[in-house]
Amino acid sequence: MPPDGNSLLTWIGIMGNQLYYEDIVPCTNITPLVKHPDTTGLVMWAGASGDYNPIHYDKDYALAHGLPGVIVHGQLAACFLGQMITDWIGKEGILKEFSINYRGMNFPGEAITCRGTVTRKYIENDKHLVALKIWAENAKEEKTLSGTAVVILPARN
């Protein structure tokens, strides 16, 4: 049986059970998500999003523009963070607000670890809200994206 706090929230995320407002304890971590985007993935994202900026697929172009190589689309990494949240909040949870600052570059072939923590829970206009701090780390554990989100969770009562 899961204990309280972090372990409970991790258990809920992994098991795919619905997370409820009452389950939330501020300062606990949400279930991390690790992604491994490769160059094929970047091409898929370019096709899906229409973002054909050559810095994401043309190494010569990227080098000529002062970059160390092709880089992962910021919005793809942001969507990884979005996935971490939607995996965690379950079917009935709703992502309401989502803000990201792009602080560093991610490179294909390197892991991106999405993380988050609960900063606050509150009720507003009869909605049960949970505020999150979210970020993504590269393989060196440097934060390459950071931001905040607010989700709406169902309540048991």
Binding site: S49, D51, Y52, I55, Q75, E97, F98, S99, I100, Y102
Partner: peptide, 28 residues
Amino acid sequence: ILGFDRMIQELNMDSTLTILHGSTNLEC
């Protein structure tokens, strides 16, 4: 992704600039 590609293309009409993403704020 909706409308983002068009905006980026319009900001870089002659394709001479490098464009990096600074921030995203989404209200759903």
